[in-house]
């Protein structure tokens, strides 16, 4: 019988699959749909210090094998999360990742300090949201900018710090090394790919922000390439994500060296995706005599 547990930043995750931020609410939305205790964790909806209403206009568009979104980090704010959403999230029986975006380095630091005093397990620093003018992507393109925000947040945060990177980074290897050097405990990548769509009847962009984030199976091979590069660049754990919809997809990321994976858009294709993918990984392990994922992690390199 395969052992799916994954040691991660001093925690023990029950499995390698973590629900990706922005696709799972804060978790209770899915608790009658699947057994969340089988998950490695849940990364909650991206938070900003004061909260924000999100974007106007169209927010979703399906593409061939993908989904474009322009939600715009709609969230209730860090304090509201701590007071109202965190207790229920904590009770789900899996690790709690608080995903934190920001409009300024000060905002990031204040939010991270507030979260450090709570029961969250991990802070996932989102420097990669493409959908708000200052959603963090300002810090996710150039390695020096990323290092600055990570270093300052590191100094005020006592929680394990996972830095979520954008595929829009100038150089994946450089930005990974920079955030590792600045004190990141792990890296997750990648967030959505900046994309565009035009409504030909209205003769203008579909999204008010013109650009939106593309996710889903369409981006998976590119995300896998970036995860491969990240694993090669750093010595801290890398959490891979981007279009994973099956156990086989997840195993590709793990064989590329990912410590764990996140599942996002697949939750919208199949609301039981996180648990199904976990079980598919276990079935593959059983069929191939693999007792622990450590036996195959990075084996493709």
């Amino acid at each position: 019988m395969s052992d799916l547990r994954v040691p991660f930043l001093g925690l023990e995750m029950a499995g390698p699959v973590v629900a990706a931020s922005g696709t799972f609410g804060f978790g209770p939305e899915y608790q009658d749909i699947e057994d969340l205790r089988l998950l490695g964790g849940i990364s909650g909806k991206g938070l900003t210090l004061a909260g924000q209403p999100g974007n106007r206009g169209e927010r979703l568009l399906e593409t061939p094998a993908g989904l474009m979104n322009s939600i715009g980090l709609q969230n209730p704010g860090v304090q509201h999360f701590i007071d109202h959403e965190l207790p229920a999230m904590r009770a789900l029986g899996t690790t709690v990742w608080a995903n934190l975006g920001g409009h300024s380095i000060e905002d990031y630091c204040t939010g991270a300090a507030m979260l450090s005093g709570t029961a969250v397990d991990i802070i996932e620093l989102n420097i990669s949201c493409p959908n708000v003018k200052q959603g963090g992507l300002a810090y996710g393109v150039r390695a020096a900018d990323a290092a600055e925000v990570v270093e300052k947040v590191r100094a005020v945060s006592t929680k394990p710090l996972v830095v979520k990177l954008s595929p829009q980074a100038e150089s994946i290897a450089d930005i990974c090394k920079a955030v590792e050097g600045a004190g990141a405990d792990a890296i997750s990548l990648c967030n959505t790919f900046q994309a565009c769509a035009v409504d030909i009847e209205k003769r203008r962009p579909v999204f008010d922000n013109i650009f939106a984030g593309l996710s889903g199976p369409a981006v998976r091979p590119i995300a896998l390439r970036m995860v491969w590069q990240a694993v090669g660049a750093v010595n801290i754990p890398v959490v891979g994500l981007g279009g994973i919809t099956t156990g086989a997809d997840a195993l590709q990321f793990i064989m590329a060296g990912a410590t764990a994976v996140q599942v996002g858009t697949a939750n919208f294709i199949d609301p039981t995706a996180c648990v199904r993918i976990t079980k598919e990984i276990a079935q593959w392990m059983d069929a191939h005599g693999v007792a622990n994922l450590a036996e195959v992690r990075g084996c493709a390199r």
């Binding site: 696709t23 939305e29 927010r59 939600i71 709609q74 919208f268």
Partner: peptide
């Protein structure tokens, strides 16, 4: 909407 469950915030 993508999820129908209050998770994606696409239908706000």
């Amino acid at each position: 909407m993508a999820c129908g469950l209050g998770a994606c915030l696409g239908c706000t």
